[in-house]
Design a protein around this nucleic acid. Structure first.
Length: 908
DNA sequence: CAGTATGACATTTTT
DNA sequence: TGTCATACTG
């Protein structure tokens, strides 16, 4: 095993495999899980990582690929590894793991050193309410600074809101600059100077007899602003401008050059002024925000990394950090390194350096693929990958170029598309799977009104050729496209199950929005809310909304439910909204706080054809991919600031001004650099999109203005469509715990929400999921398995549940495994957990299914106290389903109520 | 026909 | 706020 290694892992080349092998090798070589710091970007990835390691340990030896890789890496013999297997499983499942997201890790550091950073260690993490902070900030300013802000805002013609956007942008970067004081009147003077010169040109042209109308129109300026909007100012000399050509002489050229010089001086002054003033105001804002955060005892994610970095760079030295951190990390593994931001890297740097300079057994490893860096807009810095290599010559680099994901046709197509691009680092990949199908289809419909006809046709064609709809994923550029395709396909194929993965805010979902407006109307009696409501639910404008209720005396949850039922719009999103609404104490709280609710919408069906954005698809793979061109054109980047970096060092910050590039060479170069990076982003998105398919890929290309023109794709097809392996109409896609929302709205029995029944809280939901997860992860129903499983639960659910909850789960499950009736029922049977079944058009998941002597036993776990009729109905449904599937009457079912004090087995 | 002016147009998102 | 298509100009 290389002690220090950077791994360039193209899409599908076995990145997670390499990480897992390395982790297990470290364990074999005697490392403790706690000291192996493994960093990922999302919680999902962190969970998957620990599960993958755990599962690989459990089946160590069964998978030859893993085994031989581990043998090679560790240098241990097969026997030696088997010998250690049980010990490793035990070690891993009982240890505190250090597998986190980068953000969580930085958060951890800050909490440990909170005293030095001047923050409380129990701060909350949440989104900023920029509107509130900015208005309070304005009020906090003294007259002089307030004037400065107003002046700046007027001068740059910026709204206050966009000013705070810029502050946020600076804050994310965590950069700072020196400011200089330039008087605004100086700029006004310079403007006049330039205008005076330009008026000479005007006079000259107007008195030139041969001047064309266009030439006269080109000098129709009265003030400075009109002057600089003229295109001819960008020319090198006056005669380069065709409308001036006829009048051109030395005198005009003299005026022209002088005007250009004065305008150039204006730009220099203005950019220096604007940048300085902006940072001056930013510093005030930052200081104010610190005070505000500390008074409210909360921080934003950006605050955390910002403060943490300040702490490390000024207040404490790295030795101190290293020795004070509650765990010493001897090994670091970083996943998706190309997405690391500069700030994050700077925070990790001392830890990495300590490892690199140590003579002990300490290792450093990072994997990534700069071609898959598509998150630059939120800070990801791909240059870091090579920079770290370049600046630390002990680090080795390896490249993974075998593709284990896609079939030959797909791999070859991607190779062909990317390897001839100049300035794009690409190594050809080698496919291990044969065959496959690739098609580039020039879709004329994409430019018409009926955009998705051909997409729909292709889908039905694929399904006829034996591709299961579950195996198809449609990838798009925007969330908007996802929605449009979803509703189009729903219309065309009403019975087709479609799942969309979108992150859109719950409060923006139509039904939820309708209820919010209805409640606001009832509270404020302002017509605007009623009209909003009418528009959303499709009623005529001015329709009345009559609803008798007493907002004050009912719980917020009850009000939402009643109104949603009244409007007949109760759905999954409304139910989630009701669950979340428990956090509002009363209706007034709700009215004023609801707009800040940050939760996301419930995604539709959990099974079926998938539609998602390319960004969302990163890290995933699909049997068949339909890739859609960018439907609408790309928008330009609207940041007001331009950060120019040399590798990873900040070179300059510019305040973006249109036209400045004509007068400042360095600004022009910085703009050019930014453009190159944006171009790379665009190619990277294409790379991610084209590497998701395992078997079949169909590209829908626009006839004109297609993004695929970057790769010069032409109409093309190669190979044969590969049918799905699983032919059943809707089969399980994941073995994950699926939460089915409780149908609160449809219950017969009136709800008793006021007594704060825990059944309906999110917390209870996670408690239930965690309990199910614990039971799912147990290999055997005994205490030993429970210990292992509870550890996994802790690692996975510690965000949602506290120690007591975990203990409660442990107690409950422990009661179950010592329950004689239960044990005797399952003894000597073969059992399958989380068995999904599809029956009468419904997908259900059975918690535990046991087969014994030709008899079947169904078990369903419940963590609620209440024994509801619907539980019985649900289990009866399972029973019917199993009976019909196995064609036997010997099916028995039980509901297991996992109560705190006792276990109840209820035969149904 | 080449150069110029003008108006319409639009993203991605975790912690 | 940059890009693109389109109309206009000489």
């Amino acid at each position: 095993m290389k002690k220090y290694l950077a791994l360039k892992a193209s899409a599908g080349s076995g990145k997670t495999f390499a990480l897992t092998v390395r982790y297990i090798t470290l364990l074999l070589k005697g490392a403790n899980p706690k000291e192996i710091l493994t960093l990922t970007f999302t919680n999902k990835a962190a969970n998957e990582m620990s599960e993958r390691i755990y599962n690989t340990l459990l089946s160590l030896g069964e998978d030859k690929a893993y085994l031989s890789a581990i043998i090679t890496q560790s240098g241990f013999s097969e026997e030696k590894i088997f010998e250690k297997k049980d010990y490793l499983i035990d070690l891993f499942s009982n240890a505190t793991l250090s597998i986190f997201t980068i953000d969580k890790f930085i958060n951890k550091i800050l909490r440990e050193f909170s005293g030095y950073a001047g923050v409380n260690d129990d701060f909350e993490i949440k989104e900023d309410d920029i509107e509130k902070i900015s208005s309070k900030f304005l009020k906090s300013l003294d007259l002089e600074n307030f004037d400065k802000l107003i002046d700046f805002s007027l001068f740059e013609n910026k709204k206050y809101n966009s000013l705070f956007e810029i502050f946020k942008n600076i804050f994310e970067k965590g950069e700072d600059i020196e400011t200089v004081n330039i008087d605004l009147s100086l700029i006004e003077l310079q403007k006049k100077e330039a205008l005076d010169e330009a008026l000479k040109i005007k006079e000259f042209i107007l008195s030139c007899e041969v001047a064309s109308n266009s030439a006269k129109k080109a000098v129709d300026y009265e003030n400075f602003e009109e002057l600089i909007s003229k295109k001819w100012l960008e020319k090198e000399s006056a005669q380069d401008y065709s409308y001036f050509k006829k009048c051109s002489n030395d005198l005009l050229e003299k005026y022209f050059q002088k005007t250009k010089e004065e305008v150039g001086n204006y730009y220099k002054l203005r950019s220096a002024f604007s940048l300085s003033r902006l940072f001056e105001l930013y510093k005030l804002f930052k200081a104010y925000k610190r005070r505000y955060n500390s008074s409210k005892n909360y921080l934003h994610f950006d605050d955390i990394s910002n403060i943490c970095y300040e702490l490390l760079s000024s207040k404490i030295d790295k030795e101190f950090l290293y020795f004070r951190l509650d765990s010493n990390f001897s090994h670091i593994l970083i996943d998706e390194f190309q997405d690391t931001s500069l700030l994050q890297y700077k925070i990790l740097k001392p830890l990495i350096e300590e490892i690199l300079s140590s003579t002990d057994f300490k290792t450093f490893f990072y994997v990534g693929d700069t071609k898959q860096s598509i998150y630059r807009f939120r800070g990801g810095k791909r240059e870091l990958f090579d920079y770290v290599l370049k600046t630390n010559d002990m680090i080795n680099v390896e490249v993974l170029n075998t593709n284990y994901r896609s079939c030959e046709e797909v791999v070859n197509f991607v190779n062909k598309s990317f390897n001839s691009l100049p300035f794009y680092e690409y190594y050809d990949q080698l496919a291990i799977h044969q065959d496959g199908y690739v098609e580039v289809y020039e879709d004329e419909a994409l430019l018409d009104d009926d955009k998705f006809v051909n997409l729909a046709k292709k889908i039905s064609e694929l399904m006829q050729k034996g591709v299961n709809s579950n195996d198809i994923a449609i990838l798009t550029y925007t969330n908007d496209d996802v929605l449009n395709i979803y509703s189009y396909l729903k219309r065309m194929f009403p019975s087709l199950k479609i799942s969309t993965e979108m992150t859109s805010k719950l409060i923006n979902q139509e039904n939820v929005k309708a209820v919010i407006n209805a409640i606001k109307y009832l509270y404020f009696k302002e017509d605007i809310y009623k009209e909003n409501l009418n528009a959303i639910i499709g009623k005529e404008p001015k329709s009345s909304f009559e609803y008798e209720t007493d907002l004050k005396y009912k719980s917020v949850q009850e009000v939402i439910l009643k109104i949603a039922d009244y409007l007949e719009i109760t759905d999954d999103n409304i139910i989630k909204f009701i669950e979340l609404a428990s956090s509002y104490k009363n209706i007034v709280d709700f009215i004023y706080e609801v707009d800040n609710l940050d939760a996301s919408i419930e995604n539709s069906e959990k099974i079926g054809l998938q539609i998602l954005t390319i960004f969302k698809s990163k890290g995933l793979e699909f049997h068949t991919v339909l890739l859609l061109d960018r439907v609408k054109q790309k928008v330009p980047n609207r940041n007001s600031l331009l950060f120019e970096y040399d590798d990873v060092n900040l070179k300059n910050i510019y305040y973006k001004i249109g036209g400045l590039d004509n007068y400042s060479q360095e600004y022009k170069e910085a703009l050019q650099k930014e453009k190159t990076l944006e171009f790379e982003d665009e190619l990277n998105i294409l790379y991610v999109a084209l590497t998701r398919a395992r078997k079949n890929m169909i590209v829908f290309k626009k006839k004109e203005k297609s993004v695929f023109d970057l790769l010069s794709l032409k109409e093309f097809s190669s190979g044969e469509i590969i049918a799905s392996e699983n032919k059943s109409k809707n089969y399980e896609k994941t073995k994950k715990v699926v939460y089915i929302p409780k149908q609160i709205g449809k219950q017969e029995k009136p709800l008793n929400i006021q007594d704060n029944n825990e059944t309906y809280t999110l917390h209870a939901k996670y408690f239930g999921i965690a309990t199910h997860y614990c039971l799912e992860m147990m290999n055997e129903f005994d205490e030993n398995s429970l210990l292992l499983a509870i550890n996994l639960v802790e690692n996975r659910f510690s965000i949602y549940l506290n120690k007591e909850d975990i203990q409660k789960i442990k107690t409950r499950v422990s009661k179950l495994v010592s329950n004689e009736e239960f044990i005797s029922l399952i003894q000597n049977g073969t059992f399958s957990k989380e068995q999904s079944l599809f029956y009468k058009d419904e997908l259900k998941i059975i918690d535990l299914l046991v087969e014994k002597d030709g008899k079947y036993y169904i078990f369903d776990y419940k963590t609620t106290k209440d024994e509801l009729q619907e539980h019985i109905e649900q289990v009866n449904f399972y029973k019917e389903a199993i009976k019909s599937i196995v064609s036997s009457d010997e099916v028995y079912s039980y509901i297991i109520y996992l109560n705190e004090n006792n276990i109840k087995l209820k035969k149904v």
